[in-house]
């Protein structure tokens, strides 16, 4: 009896493993192998078109001494701080405002989400037309008020906020949709109970709505942290990281090192650091929220 039960259990385990195998294979080949390969590459002095030489952690030591890299790390963190809270708060505000069945809300939901389907090239072209000091939309508006134009993209203090503004406009659709989906899951009865409990709009938001959608809020924050740490296209097209590296993010730094200076081992080391930063930021947020709930 025992032997038969053991055979059945092992047969079940085998068939289970076969079901998992296709995904596991793709996961290993497309995710685990590149990750390990990247870590291995970061331990080499490697040229994109030439040979490589094992140098241990020397690339990492160089990175920590590299002012440009340190500037890129700071820029990226600054960019994340500018965008993630704004995307979360604005996404939630839009979702709250548009969470009803009216035709107007349906049109506005589509409108706010429509920017998300545009490519980064289109988005940045649009915002360049808005931001450039010569004939840009904002410059024209300021001119009509007899005010001087503002060089958003060539001012070291304004370049990153300009890139962040563009990004918020581009990416607001996803958080809004996630919050809308979450709001529609909150039972209507709870709002009716809150109305009978004399809770006003603000108190209902704080004590009923937000606690009910806190898991979605966590998902939005974690997703946006991961996405916004990977800032590349907007900075590449709008500012090229300038002026004076004021808007240089880590990914653009990696691109410039790997594909313009061909120092692929050094770029791989910077990539691993970015990976660790994203992992730490997302996990911190995740663990902090779990702890609170």
């Amino acid at each position: 009896m025992k032997a038969r039960a053991r055979d059945a259990a092992s047969g079940e385990a085998l068939s289970g493993a076969l079901f998992v195998a296709p995904y596991l294979l793709v996961f290993l080949v497309l995710l685990v192998y590149p990750l390990v390969s990247g870590i291995w590459l970061s331990l080499h002095k490697a040229d994109l078109f030439g040979g490589s030489q094992y140098i241990g952690f020397e690339n990492y030591v160089r990175l920590f001494k590299d002012d440009v890299f340190r500037k890129a790390v700071w820029n990226t963190c600054y960019f994340v701080l500018l965008t993630v809270p704004a995307l979360t708060v604005i996404g939630l505000a839009l979702a709250l405002a548009l969470n009803n069945g009216t035709r107007r809300s349906a049109v506005l939901r589509g409108l706010f989400f429509s920017s998300s389907v545009l490519s980064v090239t289109i988005v940045t072209l649009i915002w360049r037309m808005v931001l450039v000091p010569d004939g840009g939309l904002i410059a024209d508006l300021l001119a009509s008020l007899h005010l001087p134009s503002v060089p958003f993209l060539s001012d070291a203090r304004l370049a990153m906020p300009a890139v962040a503004l563009t990004t918020i406009w581009w990416c607001i659709g996803l958080p809004m949709m996630l919050f809308l989906a979450a709001l529609q899951q909150v039972p209507k009865d709870l709002y009716e109970a809150a109305a009978l409990d004399n809770a006003g709009w603000w108190r209902t938001l704080l004590r009923v709505t937000l606690p009910s959608i806190r898991r979605t809020a966590l998902v939005v924050v974690v997703i946006e942290i991961i996405l916004q740490f990977q800032l590349f296209g907007q900075a590449q097209i709008m500012t090229l990281g300038g002026p004076n590296n004021a808007s240089l993010p880590i990914v653009l730094f990696i691109y410039q090192i790997g594909f313009q200076r061909w120092d692929i081992g050094y770029a791989a080391a910077a990539s691993e650091i970015l990976f660790c930063i994203i992992l730490a930021a997302a996990m911190t947020q995740y663990l902090a929220s779990r702890g609170r709930s």
């Binding site: 039972p187 009865d189 709870l190 109970a193 809150a194 009978l196 606690p211 009910s212 806190r214």
Partner: peptide, 13 residues
Amino acid sequence: VAMVFQSYALYPH
């Protein structure tokens, strides 16, 4: 007035 709902509508958190 106070109401007891069919689903009870207790605040889950």
